[in-house]
């Protein structure tokens, strides 16, 4: 009987909040555009909490959002340490090295159409491969600590950024390149004043794809061996102990870190490529 009551209550809350959203969506406006997804997110959390409490779902299957929040609150130093290990040391180092190398290589092979025609298909091919699979090898080579995670990240982000940068360097129009020729501009001047700025929207596209890859690479590489800290390490050990509230806490931190990283890149993109039609207001 209480099961039926619980179900009715859950459905009622869902229906009510959905109706509210539908009503809001019909009006439009800037505030609504922010409020509707926020209400939807809160609805999901509320329903989650209700389902867990009303139906007595055990914490080893699905902990309630409140339990996860409690786990976050109780383990802040631990979570921070994991974040530093995995995100700042592993992912960020690898991201900077990998993206830097990719842009550098793209500029270096820029003068050789032969190398480009050879490297692009290979790069496109490699970009679609399950590169996280190289994690066990790189852990073997660079040890358990963050260096091996950074190495995995380097390999993961390199090709998407390379392919995008090469495409970007080819993006300036024939007319604009002719214009530089009429000025008698040197190769370096054309690269610096025309082709690199014109390539920026493409480069940022690659850099944004790479943010997610970097975090995934750093976390998954820890499944193959790590010191006793790090987000991937924590997830795999706490899963083993069925302490799912801690796993969800770690995932929540990863989600926040991931979107903050992406958001930072998107912000930088806005500032650098303000002139591009996709960024203009």
């Amino acid at each position: 009987m209480s099961g039926v009551f619980g179900l009715a209550l859950v459905l009622a809350v869902w229906g009510g909040l959905w109706a509210l959203n539908a009503w809001l969506a019909a009006r439009g406006g800037r505030a609504v555009r922010l409020a509707v997804p926020a209400i939807f997110g809160l609805t999901l959390l509320l329903l989650w909490e209700m389902v867990v409490r009303l139906f007595g779902v055990p914490g080893v299957i699905l902990p309630a959002p409140s339990a996860i929040a409690a786990a976050i609150g109780a383990n802040l130093p631990l979570l921070w340490g994991d974040l530093v290990q995995t995100f700042f040391k592993g992912a960020l180092t690898g991201y900077v090295l990998g993206c830097g190398a990719a842009v550098a290589v793209a500029v270096l092979i820029d003068r050789s159409p032969f190398l480009q025609r050879g490297l692009l298909p290979v790069g496109n091919f490699v970009a679609a491969l399950p590169i996280v699979g190289t994690a066990p090898i790189l852990v073997m080579w660079f040890g358990f600590d963050w260096q091996s995670k950074a190495a995995v990240v380097v390999v993961m982000v390199f090709f998407p950024v390379l392919v995008n940068t090469v495409a970007g360097l080819a993006a300036s129009g024939a007319m604009q390149r002719d214009l530089m020729r009429t000025y008698g501009a040197s190769y370096g001047q054309t690269l610096l004043k025309l082709r690199l700025p014109a390539a920026m929207p493409f480069v940022f596209n690659g850099l944004k794809i790479a943010t997610t890859l970097a975090l995934i690479g750093a976390i998954v590489a820890e499944f193959f061996g790590s010191p006793i800290r790090g987000m991937g390490f924590r997830i795999s050990t706490e899963v083993g102990r069925l302490a799912l509230d801690m796993v969800w806490a770690e995932i929540a931190v990863a989600a926040v870190a991931g979107s903050a990283f992406y958001g930072a890149l998107a912000l930088a993109e806005r500032r650098v490529t303000f002139w591009h039609p996709s960024q203009r207001k």
């Binding site: 809001l24 969506a25 975090l215 997830i235």
Partner: peptide, 23 residues
């Protein structure tokens, strides 16, 4: 309503490492 509620979350999900849920 679905557009405004769900799509932002679907886009945001691409920026977070949801692979971490796997284990």
């Amino acid at each position: 309503a679905m557009d405004m509620s769900v799509l932002p979350w679907a886009i945001a999900s691409q920026t977070i490492p949801i692979l971490a849920l796997a284990p």
